[in-house]
């Protein structure tokens, strides 16, 4: 009991110290290391019970068709050797939680798809897989599924910092003929109804996800294109720097949420 009181006291004291230590410079550091969302909610939260059940049942969830194809592709001997010739499957656990990340060799931000294509071209001596191709979706969903249930942990410091800023600016910029920003729907209006759709927080943790509307699995970038065409904005290319930066911001913003891929979404 006394010990409990003591820890509580200590916690209070350190909390107070934190408040006092918040000089302007300090506040900035705190801002960047804390996620902007108090309590991020997965898109899962906004689904009907039927769609939730579909996601949670590995046999009913169509996303597992891609995961299974990816498991096979991972072992397949192609080019200079299979993925498995370099990586133990177990070593893929947790990998997806760390993307997008700044890649030193390429000197740019890459996401998991970018990493897969680096392995393809540099190690396997094969042409890059087209984004959104069945081959890419199979590998990306298989690798992401290995981290299912794990929270993301992306780096936003050092060379990643300007990418985060860029992604954040994108999120707040109004765009399209309907002049709406991601922020206005996914920060300001989540929980409300946009016609028959309850607007979610626009979290990335379910992707690659099976979308009922697509009748297919698809990447986060494809989902972003849909939101952009919804407001009649010119979409960006899949894998573009603009979407990579936005992806980093979204993943950072989702801090604390567990990966769900392959999720099922409307």
């Amino acid at each position: 009991m006394v010990g409990y009181r003591l820890t509580l006291g200590l916690m209070l004291a350190s909390a107070l110290m934190l408040v006092h230590a918040q000089t302007p410079g300090m506040a900035q550091v705190m801002q960047i290391s804390e996620s902007p969302m108090d309590k991020p909610l997965s898109g899962f939260h906004f689904l009907t019970p039927e769609t939730r059940a579909m996601q949670q049942d590995d046999f009913a969830n169509p996303g597992y068709l891609w995961v299974a194809a990816g498991a096979e592709a991972f072992q397949q001997n192609v080019g200079a050797g299979s993925c498995a010739s370099c990586h133990d499957t177990k070593a893929m656990v947790g990998v997806a939680t760390r993307y997008p990340k700044f890649d030193e060799s390429a000197q740019t931000l890459i996401n998991l798809e970018g990493q897969i294509n680096q392995c393809r071209t540099k190690r396997q001596q094969l042409p890059a897989l087209a984004l959104e191709s069945q081959g890419m979706l199979a590998l990306s969903s298989f690798i992401t599924q290995q981290s299912q249930g794990m929270p993301t942990s992306v780096s936003i410091h050092g060379p990643a910092a300007p990418w985060l800023e860029r992604g954040k600016a994108y999120f707040f910029q109004r765009r399209g003929q309907l002049n709406l920003a991601c922020h206005q729907c996914h920060d300001e209006s989540w929980g409300k109804m946009l016609r028959g759709d309850q607007v979610s927080q626009g979290q990335p943790n379910g992707f690659p996800a099976y979308r009922l509307e697509w009748q297919s699995l698809g990447s986060l970038h494809r989902r972003l294109q849909d939101c952009e065409s919804g407001v009649r904005a010119q979409t960006q290319e899949l894998g573009s720097d603009a979407y990579l930066a936005l992806e980093l911001y979204l993943v950072w913003r989702s801090q604390g949420l567990a990966l769900e891929s392959p999720a099922v979404r409307r």
Binding site: R174, G176, R232, A233, Q234
Partner: peptide, 11 residues
Amino acid sequence: LHRVDERYRGR
């Protein structure tokens, strides 16, 4: 307006 899709630009 910012980045309006071509099909809607100027309209």
